[in-house]
Every structure is written in structure tokens, then in C-alpha cells.
């Protein structure tokens, strides 16, 4: 990480959902930085809080039942959690662009794709309609859609999945965002199309200098695009560091087990490594370390106390008693 001020600085972010079954600790005390022009990968299984992270940054958490309980999200030094609704509207789609998983449901089926790109441009800039149309066509060309003038007037259902995701990227990038949040952008796509989209996101990042947060459950996708990676489990960051280091030398037992459990073409194994049990319920979390019931290296202390995320001398952050004795401070809320 550079000494410069990061583009996005998230500190101690907690987002809880207050349901009838109790409080769901969807995101608990998460901190990270996104440097300019860098890609942060957030990886985790379902229910690990990775999507809630994205929604919290955009302040799109549905409330009730959800609430951002504490923490700060600083974009260029300004806490966007303190912004008014109106200011947030300018930030979303303006300074922060977002790409969702399902390109079919996140596009409006009754408007042409051109219309939907123009909508965002008109909202965030002083363009008139003619300029906005030109800009929209230019965006379609930029994301690699053939015959952009023709595609401009077509409806989402006339496009393939990969093309729709390209349109989503065009919308997200149409206002030159400084931060692009991609929530499982390629999960619904085929591998050959996925490779195209990841390449496109990488190329556009180079061209525009935007930072990217890439959220996915696919460790392969992360290793293809991310500079840094944060591994999440049950609403907490378990390990955080340079992507290459985390994947080649994982320190947290969860990261290590996760990496071993995916079948891999390079290494032939008779049986896959298994992480026994399942992800804990976020409303009835286990005592101690959230991963200890499934951890093969669990010790007595893991059952009693919650480890804190500590930074090693080389900058890697790990939340595990195998690496540090630090105990998490009691949460003041919830």
C-alpha cells in the first residue's frame, strides 16, 4: 500500500440486521483501504458479508431491518455515511459505479439499453440529450459491443448475458467513477465470456485509473484480477493482504482450507480437502473464534476468546490465535 491517502478508507464498519430471530451480525468490525488504481478482492462464501460490504458502502442496505451501526466509510477523506440522501444520489453512479451479479434483473426490461445508459449520464452531468446519446454510444463502443448505434436502440432481452453485463459496465463507467464496485460480476456467465468480462474490467481500469472492489466467491477470479484480497467469514475479515501472498502462503486456517478444497487442474488429488460443518448462523454465532467449530487447528483459547485482526510485520493481517494472542475488544453495541 502506498503512503498516499487511499481512495476509500473503511474503518470498523458494522452492519446488523434486526430481525425477529435476533440480531444478524452481517458485517462486524470490518476495515480496509482501497488505493487509487488498485483492485481489492473480497472473497467469501454465501453469508460471509461480502455483498453487505458493497451495499453498506453504497448505503443501499435495506432499512429496516438493516442498519449501519457504526464505523466510517471515507471516500477521498469525506465520510459518506454522514451524507444526506440527496448527496448520496450524486455519489452513487457518479463517484462510485456498481455492477451487480444478475445482468438480466438489474437492467430494466422496458427501456432500451441506450436509454438506461443515458439516464445515468443525464443525472450526473450537465449534458443535453444529444450529448448524452453520443456519450452512451461511445460507452457501448468502449465496452466492446459491436454495432453500438444499433444496439443503443435495443432492449435487454435482445442481448446475450455477456452483452448485458457489458451494458451494465457501460452504465457503471459512464460517469467516470473513481471507484467501481463489482458484486459477482461474472457468476452468471460462461467461462469464456467471464474471461472476456474480466479482461474488459482490467483494461478499463488501466484506461480510466479507477479503483475496483471485486466481490466474488471464486478464488480463481480473484487471483486473476486482484492486487489485494480480503477473505471474509461470517461477517468478519479473517485474512487481508497482497493477493499473491495470501494465495501462495495463506496464514489463516480458513484461507488455507478453502484453497485446498477447490479442485485444480494442476494438482491431481484422490480426495478433495473438506471443511467439515457449515457456515455458522449469523444470529447465533459461536463463542470464541467464529471459525473454531470447523477449524482443524483449534485450541482451547479459540473456543473462549475472539481473536483480533492483527498486522504482521510484513503487513499481512490475520485474525487467528495461531499468529497472535491479541483478543478482540468487546463490542460496544449489539
Amino acid at each position: 500500500m502506498t503512503d498516499k491517502q487511499p481512495l476509500l478508507k473503511v474503518r470498523d464498519l458494522c452492519t446488523y440486521f434486526y430481525t425477529e430471530e435476533g440480531i444478524v451480525y452481517a458485517l462486524d468490525d470490518v476495515s480496509f483501504d482501497v488505493a487509487r488504481g488498485q483492485t481489492l478482492g473480497i472473497v467469501g462464501e454465501s453469508g460471509s458479508g461480502k455483498s453487505v460490504t458493497a451495499l453498506s458502502i453504497m448505503r443501499l442496505v435495506q432499512s429496516p431491518p438493516g442498519r449501519i451501526v457504526s464505523g466510517t466509510v471515507e471516500l477521498l477523506g469525506e465520510d459518506i455515511l454522514k451524507k444526506s440522501r440527496k448527496e448520496m444520489k450524486q455519489i452513487r453512479g457518479g463517484k462510485i459505479g456498481m455492477i451487480f451479479q444478475e445482468p438480466m434483473t438489474s437492467l430494466n426490461p422496458v427501456y432500451t439499453v441506450g436509454n438506461q445508459i443515458m439516464e445515468s449520464i443525464l443525472l450526473h452531468s450537465d449534458c443535453n440529450r444529444k450529448q448524452a446519446k453520443e456519450r452512451a454510444i461511445e460507452m457501448l463502443r468502449l465496452v466492446g459491443i459491436p454495432l453500438p448505434e444499433k444496439r443503443f436502440g435495443e432492449y435487454p432481452h435482445q442481448l446475450s448475458g455477456g452483452m448485458r453485463q457489458r451494458v451494465m459496465i457501460a452504465i457503471a463507467l459512464s460517469c467516470n467513477p473513481q471507484l467501481l464496485i463489482c458484486d459477482e460480476p461474472t457468476t452468471a456467465l460462461d467461462v469464456t465470456i467471464q474471461a472476456q468480462i474480466l479482461e474488459l474490467i482490467n483494461d478499463l481500469k488501466q484506461q480510466t485509473g479507477a479503483s475496483v472492489i471485486m466481490i466474488t466467491h471464486d478464488l480463481g477470479v480473484i487471483s486473476r484480477v486482484a492486487d489485494e484480497v480480503m477473505v471474509m467469514y461470517a461477517g468478519k475479515a479473517m485474512e487481508y493482504g497482497a493477493a499473491r501472498d495470501v494465495f501462495t502462503q495463506p496464514r489463516h486456517p480458513y484461507t488455507a482450507a478453502l484453497l485446498k478444497s477447490i479442485p485444480n487442474l494442476e494438482e491431481d488429488v484422490e480426495r478433495l480437502h473438506v471443511i467439515e460443518g457449515m457456515v455458522p448462523s449469523l444470529s447465533k454465532r459461536p463463542q470464541g473464534c467464529l471459525f473454531h467449530p470447523r477449524c482443524k487447528q483449534a485450541m482451547t483459547v479459540c473456543q473462549e476468546k475472539r481473536p483480533a485482526l492483527t498486522t504482521a510485520p510484513d503487513g499481512r493481517r490475520v485474525r487467528c490465535f495461531l499468529h497472535s494472542d491479541a483478543v478482540e475488544k468487546e463490542a460496544a453495541h449489539g
Binding site: S160, G162, M163, D190, V191, T192, I193, Q194, A195, Q196, L198, E199, N202, D218, L219, G220, V221, S223, R224, R244, F247, T248, L259, I262, N264, L265, E266
Partner: peptide, 25 residues
Amino acid sequence: RALFEAIPQVGFDEQQKKAPLSGDL
């Protein structure tokens, strides 16, 4: 060949960065 090259593997081969196939089905 294109299909297998397109799978993102966990690992850091520089050569796997390029999308092997263009276009749709």
C-alpha cells in the same frame, strides 16, 4: 483449448490473463 484456458485458476501465471475467445455462442 480455449475453454480450459478461460478457467481462472488460483495461481499467478501471467499467461492466463488474456481472454482466449471472442464473441458469443
